[in-house]
Design a protein around this nucleic acid. Sequence first.
DNA 1: CGAAGATCATATCATGTGAAATGAAACGGC
DNA 2: GCCGTTTCATTTCACATGATATGATCTTCG
Lengths: 188, 188
Amino acid sequence: MAEPPATTLPATIPPADRPVAAPTEASAGMAARSAGFDLERFLPYRLNVLASRVSRDLARQYEQKFGISIPEWRVLAHLAQNRDVSVREIHERVDMDKSKVSRAAARLESLALIEKREHAGDRRLVDLRLTARGLALFAEIAPLALAFEADLFAALDAEERRVFERVMTKLLGEGPVVPAPGGSDAGD
Amino acid sequence: MAEPPATTLPATIPPADRPVAAPTEASAGMAARSAGFDLERFLPYRLNVLASRVSRDLARQYEQKFGISIPEWRVLAHLAQNRDVSVREIHERVDMDKSKVSRAAARLESLALIEKREHAGDRRLVDLRLTARGLALFAEIAPLALAFEADLFAALDAEERRVFERVMTKLLGEGPVVPAPGGSDAGD
DNA sequence: CGAAGATCATATCATGTGAAATGAAACGGC
DNA sequence: GCCGTTTCATTTCACATGATATGATCTTCG
């Protein structure tokens, strides 16, 4: 906890004009050196900063209060909607690699929040499902999560929210993020 | 590389209507169990998925071609704009903890992409600056990054882009993500 | 059938990560 | 001018992560 959590973005992000805008200090001749590239305006970077900050903050909630990690939370949430799901299913639908899902499931099982049973007809598969306890825990966390989300977007007006959601859907939904072969890809 | 990169979001994100929408299968009675919570619609989650996908894809570019990691790229980019910067400065402005910056800087130095020198007047500080080689490398990467960003947002129209940027700025800029004391915080 | 290959969950391993510890240097009050 | 505190950068350490390997099961098709 030492050092200010740096939780408040540098506050240096300039409004939204194009001209390179004075960096931090040492403003002269910089534009040339940085080839017009400004990290603080670079969307992949901003996206990443926002996402990890948001995740960290939300995670704090259920980590502290319930001892549940992010991967575990995702598994819980998925199982709350889908019963008797395999590790692979979760791996695909919840954007976590198999190891992560497997470990999260193991931990959740050890906490008696989910149970594993052999899939009927294919013994390679494991059917995961919430236990009563798991469901109860989920029922506790979900409202917190929703409230968090609501707070987070409280500053946006209706239109902003609408457009934002639509953009997210576009960016997420349209095939591989890599737009075109040979094109560049977002990273950070 | 095994298994389809799962790079294309489940494609299951429903358009944008409110009614809980049929989950995957096993649609009956689910809404009750999941308490109206749908992970795939949960914005903190979506944000995180998008951000890490974007980061991963962009990172592939400079990692493969130039052997530079994300933290290293961030340091490079920051130094391209700000000369004679301390580790702490970067730590604060670029959203990485000190260890990460320190390690990235060490590696970049060993690659002769940056150099460290003692700060005049305060020997605790290290002044980091790009070497000619570092600047040259940055000049190679920056256009790739910008092209990547452009491609990524190619699917958006002008208004969407404008609003999206504004929203990002709002979400990033307004103090700690934690909106209000007692409020919930976005995480995932 | 039966062998070759695919698919699944887990285990292993090398690496990356953040939190806290360390040690050097500067600042403050007195 | 000294002692205690603060501020840096780095190191250490425990743990998380993802790529790969393993072993078990299922599928395919000769």
